[in-house]
Design a protein around this nucleic acid. Structure first.
Lengths: 221, 221
DNA sequence: AACTCGCCGTTGCTTTTGCAACACCTAAGT
DNA sequence: ACTTAGGTGTTGCAAAAGCAACGGCGAGTT
């Protein structure tokens, strides 16, 4: 389950952007770092769990989810490789996670006790860059959540679907793109009923707004 | 409009927590800092505006809002004194704000060109504390957005209302509490129709789930 | 090959809820 | 004192969307 990490894999990660392998080694030498593997459908962290590590997706896909008492699942965010999560433990409000994290595919996650790094003052180049990176990442995670609420704030299902597709198109930089969700998961992401989603997608296609085939979508006009 | 800032006012702010007045002065001496006053209903920042300052609510109430083409207003978050906003400019994804900020009451906002502070390495105590603080604040803002999505992900209006009231009760630490929204604003915060909200609140009262009088609510049971 | 399981589309039904219109109230300004 | 403007509760109606059930399909397993 636990795996030694090769520093090589980390150079492309947003958290370590701008740091060379030597600098990454310097940072990691001061803390206990750990990579955990998860199988598809494993829970990485449960809502209510105590969190004491910053988590980084090395590869695979992780979903931030919230399940209610009835087992009704809502996907809050989809996290690809390089994503940083469980950052709420860096805040003062919560020491427990309010959401769950879930391996949507086989995944490797780097667990990093970041508190130590934070509190240790240092004016090394590596440390400064790392601090800048974490601030940027947190700000970006923020933006992503705001974008998500821009989907959810739409009053109609069609509005949500369209807002979502526009975001994916903007991400892809093209009117035609592939979405990372199955229909079931998309329904959970939009917090809508799956059958209602299928129905509304069909209507939008019939009206010539969009075209799609499996997970490939296109916004028409 | 622009006002000189007295350092005294900042000692209580989360961003400067743990810093004494001398240290705050040291930090501020390196950048141009500015306090702007806004009248109730003024826009502080418009969606699409270029952002180059971190903003801190000194006093008053600021709303993060998103308006669509039809003027339909959605309140994403309500920001009281001490709140930090417009932080997405610290990220790499956007240099423009994707949402608007709006003075819900007469307000004073501190504008702080934080990028300069970030990039200047320093191992002074003050600098280290400031970095820790900003990380904590960003993480907390994250948690708040996640909590907001926990309201919006509910499929029924009653679910949203109840989730919201539970959060307010948790914030207040009591079953009885005062909400900061008018009915109209609450509808915009929950992204629901105002009349439907009134109707559902009345039903929940009739069924004995909750009691309320103006803006004072109580969760029963 | 038979079977299971999970995902997908379809459809009928019912509830929810958005929308529009109206009347009332309060506060602020003239 | 009058007027205006904005917030609030109410209600009828129509549209939207959740729910449940079913059948088909494809992948993986025995």
């Amino acid at each position: 389950m636990d795996v030694r990490i090769s520093v090589q894999n980390l150079t492309g990660m947003p958290l370590f952007e701008g740091l060379d392998t030597e600098e990454i080694g310097e940072v990691l030498s001061r803390v206990n770092v750990l990579v955990k593997r998860f199988r598809k459908s494993d829970y990485i962290l449960l809502a209510g769990d105590c969190v004491d590590n910053l988590c980084i997706v090395i590869n695979g896909t992780v979903q931030m989810i919230k399940e209610d008492i009835w087992g009704d699942k809502s996907i809050i965010a989809n996290l690809g490789s390089g994503s940083v999560f469980a950052e709420s433990y860096l805040g003062r409000r919560h020491d427990r996670s309010i959401v769950s994290y879930f391996a949507a595919s086989d995944s490797e996650v780097l667990m990093l006790p970041f508190g130590r790094i934070l509190e240790t003052p240092s004016n090394s180049k590596a440390h400064t860059k790392l601090m800048c990176n974490i601030v940027s990442i947190l700000a970006d995670n923020n933006s992503k959540l705001i974008e998500k609420t821009e989907i959810l704030c739409k009053k109609t299902l069609r509005g949500k679907i369209y807002a979502y597709l526009e975001q994916e198109a903007a991400n892809a930089g093209a009117k035609r793109f592939i979405i990372p969700f199955s229909r079931t998961d998309l329904a959970n992401y939009l917090d809508a009923d799956r059958s209602a989603l299928t129905r509304e997608l069909a209507r939008m296609r019939d009206e010539g707004m969009i075209a799609f085939e499996k997970n490939t979508f296109e916004i028409l006009d």
